[in-house]
Design a protein around this nucleic acid. Structure first.
Ligand SMILES: [Mn+2]
Ligand SMILES: [Mn+2]
Ligand SMILES: [Zn+2]
Ligand SMILES: [Zn+2]
Lengths: 139, 139
DNA sequence: TTGTCAACTAGCAATACTTGTTGATAAGGT
DNA sequence: ACCTTATCAACAAGTATTGCTAGTTGACAA
């Protein structure tokens, strides 16, 4: 995703408002690699802006996602994860603590078998590796 | 998963009871390839047993899953899908109607990159293809 | 700078899916 | 047939997300 300043301009140019709450969320997301949930972002935002509401966090995340600035991922951990990395990539997810990390690898062999592919209009291919992360293995 | 009769015996031998409601659910799942939700199974079961409760359906599905007779899949469609096919396989999911079909293909090239693999204990690798199915394409 | 107005915020209600609880019931070993 | 206890059905509660609304605020133009 773009810088907080650029996102402010993007929001204004699309008829949205560039509010302090939104800037706060932009800054938290920028450069984050933790794949936070809405609740996690809410907790961080609240530390800087105690009055911010969870509803505003969801609203802003949804706006960013529909503008294509972040990805909303369902990694099977019970709630959506938000990812400022919009490149095509895959994920490694800990089944114990839910932590997720990027896997940058193209898997060109992963294709829908020809027998099925004809009738189906493919839009995305997701690979999720699951297991236990280093810190969950050493207790 | 095994036949409804065998599942009845399995339930009894694991200290569970083989009730009419459970047999009904076993029969609905047996040979099904639709990856139904709990609600879908509830609707079908209710047609045959009007008094069955949704709670009982969830209970039985959870029992089957913990016995390893079915898989509980999160395909990102909002609710769990239940799969009597317990072989290792992947899925093709329609983003419009939510229909899911099996993809039987081994992707041996799909591996966690070595730089990451060392610290991570891998338990499963899931591939989900998303797009629009044949009937959703022709309106 | 200031006025105008649509968009936004916060708080709370509602929804969707799943699990917890409980008195009554019925399966299954003896 | 009896007794024990898992299960049943109904309802309540929990979790994640979205809907609603009255008051507030940012953006744009005069
Ligand atoms: Mn990512
Ligand atoms: Mn399947
Ligand atoms: Zn972990
Ligand atoms: Zn479809």
């Amino acid at each position: 995703m773009r810088s907080p300043t650029e996102l402010g301009e993007l929001f204004r140019s699309t008829g949205r408002k560039n509010t302090a709450q939104r800037q706060c969320i932009f800054e938290l997301l920028h450069g984050s690699t933790a794949h936070p949930t809405a609740e996690a972002i809410f907790a961080e935002a609240r530390a800087k802006m105690p009055s911010i509401s969870l509803r505003t966090v969801y609203q802003t995340l949804n706006d960013l996602a529909s503008l294509g600035e972040i990805q909303q991922l369902d990694l099977g951990t019970g709630s959506f994860r938000f990812d400022p990395n919009i490149d095509s990539h895959h994920h490694l997810v800990c089944i114990e603590c839910g932590s997720a990390q990027d896997i940058y690898a193209a898997f060109p062999e992963v294709q829908v078998p020809p027998a099925v592919a004809g009738d189906f209009e493919l839009t995305s291919t997701e690979v999720v590796f699951r297991g236990r992360c280093a810190s969950c293995r050493r207790p």
